[in-house]
């Protein structure tokens, strides 16, 4: 998958999970920048990502996610494998 394809899928997930229908994803976005991106919703978002991309994000990678860009990089790594 290309970065653009991943970002498009991720945008759909973020808009749904964080209830932000107009959200535009930018690699620099952090939880502080997105309403409702709290720790509980973060776990739901990760479950949705795992299902949509058919991957499993290991715990130790999950806790390194500081930005949308970090998440995109993890998805790229796992979908390329």
């Amino acid at each position: 998958m290309t970065t653009e394809q991943i970002t498009a899928e991720l945008t759909t997930i973020f808009r749904k999970v964080f209830k932000a229908p107009d959200l535009e994803l930018d690699p620099s976005l952090t939880p502080n920048d997105v309403d409702n991106w709290n720790s509980l919703n973060n776990t739901i978002m990760i479950y949705e990502v795992e299902e949509a991309f058919g991957i499993k994000i290991p715990l130790r990678e999950m806790i390194t996610i500081k930005t949308v860009g970090d998440l995109i990089a993890i998805i790229e790594r796992h979908t390329a494998a």
Binding site: P31, S39, N42, T43, I44, Y47, L59, M62, I63, T64
Partner: peptide
């Protein structure tokens, strides 16, 4: 970076499993 709540929920959700977590 991720605050303690993010670390805590990541740990719990991974080990509880999706069904129990939800």
């Amino acid at each position: 970076g991720p605050g303690s709540h993010f670390i805590k929920t990541a740990l719990l959700s991974k080990h509880a499993g999706k069904e129990l977590w939800m």
